[in-house]
Design a protein around this nucleic acid. Sequence first.
DNA 1: GCCAACGTTGGC
DNA 2: GCCAACGTTGGC
Length: 168
Amino acid sequence: MLLHRNAQLSEKAKQAVQYWLMKSEPDECSIDDVLAAPERRTAWTGVRNYQARNFMRDAMRPGDGVLFYHSSCPEPGIAGLAEVASKAYPDPTQFDRASDYFDPKATRERPRWFNVDVRALKKTRLVPLAELRAHRALAKMWLLRPGSRLSITPVSAAEWRTITGSLL
DNA sequence: GCCAACGTTGGC
DNA sequence: GCCAACGTTGGC
């Protein structure tokens, strides 16, 4: 019985859905753009920050929940819901000389940058950054840390519930 | 366009 | 390994 319960628990821990916030500049790729794309899906290429890369490469799993955030725009904030749609794989833009994201130090044998695919689920009302800041239950969100600029940040299950349950 | 906060690069 | 210089992010 004890063994059985432990097995169930560890299985549950392994499969627990994780949550993320991913920033995108709407001029480049908005929630509408992804919803309009084939299979409502896009490759999250172009991330050139090691911490954000590591989240994708080492932690993200298909099915993880994603808050789709619009940044560097007139109304920064959460604009939609999405999910991780693939495991991480080498970002093809690092090998493309014509790409802004070309990295001369990356090789196919030793890729430096990875990305996942993201599938858009729905557009939501725009939840402005100021509203997130004002919400006490979100005080510890990574996004809201002073000076935080990371384009991919973890979201706790409690934060996810707060946002999807009472803000959207 | 400003600027604060970070991250990266490269000389030493 | 230090650290100054430079580049980038991203809200305002």
